[in-house]
Amino acid sequence: MDVFDQRLPQELSRNDRALTAISCLFLDIDHFKQVNDTYGHGVGDDVLCQVAQRIQTGLRTHDILARYGGEEFAVLLPDTSNDEAMMVAQRIIDAVNKDRIVIDKNVILTITISAGVSTLMTDDTMIDDTRSDSLNDIKSLGMKLLSTADEALYDAKKQGRNRAINAGLLALIDSVECSQKFQC
């Protein structure tokens, strides 16, 4: 998570300067507790490694993948529109579902994953004195991007798992105004 936490504000600043979108995926292995409870944490660790490899196959070299905790992963997609991020999320879901995970001849598992997607769009009308580039504002934007994707992930879980839910676009202007007025 340390690399992710470092890169998030850097990528937000870079995308803001370049006036491009940045997207976030929040991913969670469905019913992972059952894997640990049934087969033990060693098998759970193997499943995590194999799922992480499958997620990585759906990403570009400059995308940032991190284990966020337990069976959750966060992916930062610089220069990626909301529609493109949804395609990446579906590609990851398909990659995880495509083949069963083989631990040994006695443990062959079908694993699914759910995803939440959010995107931060910079607004080119913001290039003036109202733009705030402070580290606190950038961290606030990063947390909003992550939390919005996380909320969409929970919606995916509620709607039956093994799917991606799109939280949509976060407008930079709204987030900056929020942080300036209310210290979000």
Rank of each mutant, 00 (worst) to 15 (best):
L145H: 04
L172F: 13
M143W: 06
G168D: 08
R67F: 07
D45K: 12
A18T: 04
I111K: 05
D129G: 08
T57A: 13
L12N: 06
M143A: 10
C178S: 13
T20Y: 11
I101C: 01
G142W: 04
P78E: 09
K139D: 03
L65N: 05
I173M: 12
T57I: 09
G69W: 08
A89R: 02
V3H: 07
C178V: 09
F4A: 02
G70F: 12
E84Y: 06
Q6D: 14
E72P: 04
I55S: 02
A66I: 11
E151D: 12
D104W: 05
F73T: 02
F26V: 11
G142I: 02
N15I: 08
D128E: 03
H31T: 01
I111Q: 03
P9D: 07
S132V: 07
A171D: 15
N97L: 01
C49Q: 12
A152E: 00
Y154W: 05
Y68N: 09
N162M: 07
C184D: 04
D174F: 13
V117R: 03
G44M: 13
K144N: 08
M1Q: 11
R14F: 12
R14T: 14
I113G: 08
R60H: 12
C178T: 14
D83E: 15
T57H: 10
A85E: 07
H62G: 10
S118L: 06
G116V: 08
Q180I: 11
M87G: 02
Q90E: 14
V96H: 00
G58A: 10
L153H: 02
I101V: 04
M86P: 07
K139Y: 07
D63N: 04
D155I: 14
N162W: 05
D155M: 11
G44L: 13
E151V: 13
D124E: 14
K33D: 01
D123A: 04
I101D: 01
I93E: 02
D133V: 10
R7Q: 15
A171Q: 13
E11K: 06
E72V: 05
A115D: 04
D5W: 00
S23R: 01
V51W: 03
A18L: 15
I64V: 15
D133E: 06
K144A: 14
A171S: 14
A171L: 15
E177T: 15
S23Q: 03
A171C: 10
K98A: 13
R67M: 03
V88P: 00
